[in-house]
Design a protein around this nucleic acid. Structure first.
Lengths: 242, 242
DNA sequence: GCCGGCCGTTCCACGATACGGAACAGCCAT
DNA sequence: ATGGCTGTTCCGTATCGTGGAACGGCCGGC
């Protein structure tokens, strides 16, 4: 493993995570490096265009280069922009937060969202992650993966009392999702946060993304969920042609 | 300059630019590395979570990690999401492509856009760049930078016959933009592509971003521009409070 | 069915390269 | 003036990355 590369990338990650300009000393401490080492890396990153030094304070901050590269990554699967109108429609009909998620390892990554107009709503960020086995979009994605792509028997971490941890339960849940065509989450990730989601399929029937609603339990009562489910499924179907 | 870091990042850039999975040999050729070197870098990047190897073909592709980091970068200046409603309104009123740009060095970077519904429209990509001195949003940004932050006398490259290259002309142009509060581009970057833009200011009067319209010359006739300019300026003013 | 060429992968001795402690210069508040 | 902070520079040393050559598997053409 190339040590220098690892250090440099960790430094970039740290800068991105902190989200504000940092000095050499602070950066070194945050990443666990020698001050001179951090300094050298920052200078190199600056030369490579990933980082810039603020003239008066001497601190370093990220340029937009990382973001540009990131944009290219998603442009490839330009689902995000393509899905916007459909998501917007779904948001207007339900007045709940709409998410578009991709599967990345054992997590879902939120690639796009439209926030609910309600003042009380679950927090989430574009680019954020959640364990796939305990959110609606994640379960929808897992259920429609190619056979053997999902290791059901792997041990899953619980996050609330409702989290599915038993392999057999998960297998049954995924089967039910396949049969019904949609997934439901009743506070399995965050206490009191519910959701409904459906998979977006490619021509071969594999899920490439999932679209879903989520919000506080009091607004996700059985009656509301029943009304929304066909809307979510219709939106997913709408995006599934490709 | 840390060689390993530079190589690794160049490799990531290349993967992002190509936008499709690449094999070790191909990657090595594209970046100008030894095959074994490229292989080692790809393995490390994979271990660090930036890259994944596709099981059956053996090729490597980017994960979403870069994109996640990139999202954090603009989340910081979360203008993009905040500006969406205003941009949408402007797009609806004018039926032209709306851009939101930031200044990055001598370039503008498009951080958000809403495409014109017209079939004929200028091409641009989110995350894309253009030289600041010859697009409308760029000139709006330059005009409202702190004094001495812009080196007017630096030599600028021409791209069309209309590009401003004379330092004195540029200085006058920026002064006019400051006075009028908006900038205009008449094919100074791409032949036949016009635009109008206005700066988004922070409390101190510095431009942190710019919003603008752009499209083909035939739709950007004087009369239309005159009608749109106040709309663009109103949108920019709307986003300027913070 | 064999063979040639391509692929991704591994190995290892050499030598360039990154490391990190210590010292420097500038700034600010005490 | 002084002490403690900052970002920065230097340099000998050992570590770490390097790249050529070789391996095994896969595929397509003869």
């Amino acid at each position: 493993m190339e040590k220098t590369l690892a250090k440099g990338l960790t430094l970039l990650e740290t800068l991105a995570r902190l989200g504000h300009p940092v000095g050499v000393t602070e950066a070194a401490k945050a990443v666990g490096l020698q001050k001179s080492n951090a300094h050298r890396l920052l200078r190199s990153l600056s030369e490579l265009g990933y980082v810039r030094q603020i003239a008066d304070t001497g601190r370093y901050e990220l340029t937009l280069k990382l973001w540009e590269m990131g944009s290219r990554v998603i442009a490839r699967l330009d689902i995000a922009t393509e899905a916007t109108p459909t998501m917007r429609k779904l948001a207007a009909l339900t007045r709940e937060t709409v998410h578009l998620s991709l599967l990345e390892g054992d997590d879902v990554v939120y690639v796009h969202k439209i926030d609910s107009p309600h003042p009380v709503r679950a927090y989430s960020a574009i680019g954020g992650r959640a364990p796939a086995h305990c959110v609606a979009t994640g379960k929808a994605l897992l259920a429609f993966q190619p056979p053997d792509a999902v290791d059901v028997s792997k041990v899953r971490k619980p996050f609330t009392d409702a989290t599915i941890t038993d392999p057999l339960d998960l297998r049954r849940e995924l089967e039910r999702i396949r049969k019904q065509g949609h997934a439901v989450n009743k506070g399995e990730w965050r206490e009191g946060v519910f959701g409904v989601a459906a998979p977006i399929l490619d021509a071969s029937g594999r899920a490439v993304a999932a679209i879903g609603l989520s919000g506080p339990q009091d607004r996700f009562r059985p009656k509301a969920m029943k009304a929304w489910t066909p809307l979510v499924m219709a939106a997913a179907r709408d995006l599934s042609r490709a």
